[in-house]
Amino acid sequence: MFEARLLQGGLLKKVLDSIKDIITEGNFDCSPNGLSLQAMDSSHVSLIDILLESEGFEHYRCDRNIPMGLNITNLVKMIKCAGSEDIVTIKCEDKPDNVTFLFESKDNDKISDFEMKTMTIDDEHLLVPDQTYTAVVKMPSAEFQRLCRDMAAIGDTVNISVTKEGVRFSTTGDMGTANITVRPNPSGDQKEEERTEVQITEPVSAGFALRYLNSFTKATPLSPTVTLGMVPNLPIVVEYKIADMGHVRYYLAPKIED
């Protein structure tokens, strides 16, 4: 059986907000290591990779690997019924037809349980290689969100080029062009999460669909910083670390040059 108790139930809401625009169903894999999800959007252009490590739960029991296929839209509806301060327990049997969500209010004066039907999902599992990224950019997640939103107001595709001087985001649309360059902050005055850091072994440049990048920024409430990893001619990875718990990562296939 599987049983996991999460003290910060609001975290589940944030995780679901970060995926609900991209996928409608997915297999949550329960394993002794933690709860994970890998799923592609319907066009197979982007991939979501979530890990919530067992150590991050207040109580975690998983005897064997259990795939928990869930409709994300319905899951969002159910988790919305939890208060953001509630303690959430997720429970299911080894071959589950149903999964139970137990919500306990912080003051322990209200207990709710919801049972949701599982579904069988045949999804393609991708082997994402352990990559050494040619360029890694760490920046405030709110700044990345703002930047993607601004770029999307002008164009559909953003070209991201990273040099040691900084990261340049460029787009072109019917009304004109936009370029935003973010430079690594030189001074040590900022808090770590307010800094932009660039590490490169060689300059990288590629184009990506802003529609997807904007969806990824729905993960902003999960982390004060976001990390972009790029390798020439390979998908970009956009990672939001969840403190003491794991991550939400997105992979996005590049645009092809004409």
Binding site: G207, Y251, K255
Partner: peptide, 14 residues
Amino acid sequence: SGGQSNLGQFFATR
């Protein structure tokens, strides 16, 4: 802007 590639072109399936 060019066409859109998909992840199957980069990552193997299991």
